[in-house]
Design a binder for these strands. Structure first.
Lengths: 343, 343
DNA sequence: TTGAAAGCGATACCAT
DNA sequence: ATGGTATCGCTTTCAA
């Protein structure tokens, strides 16, 4: 940690120039003579000087950092989300702070704390209280991702309802399945809540009685395996299992195949997200494609804009389109869609 | 963003006290009379003041942040890693900065940049150049996770070799399988490199000729499905598929089941990591348990210690134990181990 | 107990 | 083109 004590002043002294000149050289701003520039760069190189971000940020009145708040990491969904956010933030010279609220009782406080360390925050829907969200929004620009914000807090989400309604109607009408179950916890997130609501609405729109309640589990593959155990054991087995995401669906699929059931002949399974593996399993998974990466990237862009050009700060809701992807697990033939199950 | 302009000075003015007193109250340091404390707290509450982290950090000469550098997020492994790190850092009032190096050409520069924004960094093995790592280590305390550092850079990793050797010998000797393949890319990470090396060494130690090369794929479930397609199609089908992690193994499992093969009768499959879902699939997956969360937590602790007590900074390698978990996918009976495949 | 003032590291304005 | 210096928000001596 030899050169960590290096400051502008020190470099200025070593190069025999003023701190102003060092600053100009290291930022490429202002006019500096070739001679000076050379002397300064030499000193910088020689001692491996890199300006401390704190001083910079304080002088600039900007942290150069964005925050990302999510419940906990689980599965490809959050993976994509983080990467989408990060890949948009870093090129804009903003570092990314993360905060997992799950398994933490003081998340509201932690989030407000974060509000003083970053220039803007993206909060995944359903992770903190509305009050904390509003307070946070008073400090820095905030965008809710996969949910809707209270008050004038803008949001970016996917069109859950449209595609879930299409999917459900497809199962009820095209495949004439009237005994569907929904696996996922609507209380868990705004996304699942919307999907469950659309699932119910679709039933009503075609005059079929929906199940009274969802199988409320969380969003991981293991939960799907457990749900399968519960659902597929009994004799009155559901004709179709509509899952809140692909992870659950894959778990149910593994559970079904593992106990010797044929999919889709014995039971139909559908997911949501169109994770990479969905197209590859056998049978390929019918699901809804959702632009998760783009969702997060858009959130990052909104925040960056709000930071650099406050007057252009949006306050509306961005809803990105989703797409129904019919593959074999719902009973459709293999080659139905372009993005289908492959060769 | 109403109160974002609030500073100590402003609060001091509003409360009719000095900035020093405000600082003392908001930090709980020093002696302040009840009367003063009340006045200050009132002003703080009323205007929702929260000290800006920049000023604080600059005065303290510490960022109050740790960095975490990883290639890219994929699967439960990185999920666990991040959460383990975060859950150790946040209670110590350190925020977590992340950086994905994958899909980024200037990662070495980005990492050095990060070195000026945080108090210490954990770098996943194999993500940046040794040179960058050494330069980073000159700025702040650094720990390599899942790999070994160059020079005196300390590291935290799991005992890959021991358990992989046991697992391989178990397949070769107990189950008498002499035709094993290894799925995973040793070039991809130090972890996989060690596992492949141990796989080879175990073959030699029992006098069986190992395969000439691994099936080099990356670490996701989709890669496993693709590998299965390639491996299990042909007639001279391998007797056992040893996968570099559980994700790949699950992909291979799905691929095998999907094409009507029985596991373990027709083909044996093993993983590495003991992800939650490994115990739940049917057949349950034989794998190696690795304390990923603990690995990351230990890294965070090492860095935090190095930051707060430089004299105690360690420079050794921590190797956490792993454990062979025998379940049904290798051909063992269901009830072999305590942590086994359940009822 | 309280306040005035000196930094922390870097930037940028204003003279020169 | 270059240098001196005020400034960012906060903490922490040092005096009173």
């Amino acid at each position: 940690m030899g050169n960590s004590r290096l400051t502008v002043r020190e470099i200025a002294r070593l190069a025999g120039v003023s701190v102003a000149t060092v600053s100009r050289v290291s930022n490429g701003t202002g006019q500096v003579s070739e001679e000076m520039r050379r002397r300064v760069l030499e000193a910088i190189e020689k001692h491996g000087y890199r300006p401390d971000h704190l001083g910079r940020a304080l002088a600039a009145g900007r942290h150069g950092a964005l925050g990302l708040v999510f419940p906990g990491l689980s599965g490809p969904y959050f993976t994509e989300l983080i990467q989408g956010f990060e890949s948009e933030a870093v090129p804009s010279r903003a570092s990314v702070h993360i905060l997992c609220t799950h398994l933490r009782s003081d998340s509201d406080q932690q989030v407000l704390e974060m509000g003083r360390r970053v220039d803007g925050v993206a909060v995944i829907g359903g992770t903190i209280s509305e009050l904390a969200l509003l307070r946070l929004a008073e400090m820095v620009p905030v965008v809710v991702v996969a949910g809707t914000g209270p008050g004038a807090v803008p949001s970016v989400r996917a069109d859950n309802a449209g595609s879930m309604a299409m999917l459900t109607r497809h199962l009820l009408v095209e495949h004439e399945l009237t005994d569907l179950v929904f696996v996922g916890n609507p209380e868990g997130s705004p996304d699942v809540s919307e999907r469950w609501a659309a699932f119910l609405a679709a039933h009503r729109s075609v005059g079929v009685t929906p199940p009274a309640a969802p199988i409320a589990v969380s969003m991981q593959q293991a939960d799907g395996v457990l749900a399968a155990e519960q659902l597929l054991r009994g004799d009155p087995r559901p004709a179709g299992v509509v899952c809140a995401n692909d992870e659950i669906a894959l778990g149910v699929l593994v559970g079904a195949l593992g106990r010797g059931l044929r999919v889709p002949q014995d039971v139909v399974i559908t997911g949501f997200d169109d994770a990479p593996v969905a197209a590859l399993v056998n049978p390929a998974l019918t699901t809804v494609r959702q632009p998760v990466r783009e969702l997060a990237a858009e959130a990052a862009r909104l925040i960056l804009t709000a930071v650099s050009e406050p007057e252009r700060a949006s306050s509306g809701d961005v809803v990105l389109p989703t797409e129904l992807v019919l593959r074999r697990s719902c009973g459709c033939p293999a080659n139905l869609t372009a993005g289908g199950s492959g060769s």
